[in-house]
């Protein structure tokens, strides 16, 4: 069971959180301007890489904040977490 550091509440066990997929995939500013292919890429295509991966978690049973985590998908090392609006370099 993972332990995840909520940037607001501190480290907590995984069942307190909900997973939110890859981080930094913004909802397109003007979806109507996108082609079907561009829109489909936004909807369905995500990275699936080995190594450090920025992903979103929601502290559902805690402060209800969405935030970002950098996790190593190969080792499950939790490299760090950072708030929405902060940069991956801010992870700690």
């Amino acid at each position: 069971m993972f332990q995840i550091r909520c940037p607001y509440c501190g480290p907590r066990d995984e069942p307190e959180f909900k997973y939110g997929g890859q981080a930094h995939v913004a909802y397109p500013a003007d979806p109507e301007q996108l082609s079907d292919e561009e829109w489909t890429r936004f909807l369905f295509v995500r990275d699936n890489s080995r190594g450090r991966y920025a992903e979103r978690w929601n502290h559902a049973a805690g402060c209800r904040r969405w935030f970002n985590v950098i996790r190593d998908t190969g080792t499950h090392e939790m490299v760090g977490s950072y708030r929405s609006g902060e940069r991956p370099e801010d992870a700690r």
Partner: peptide, 14 residues
């Protein structure tokens, strides 16, 4: 629904 609303509120339209 609440988590999803919070998601848009916090990350897309803060």
């Amino acid at each position: 629904v609440l988590d999803w609303m919070e998601d848009f509120l916090q990350t897309e339209w803060p």
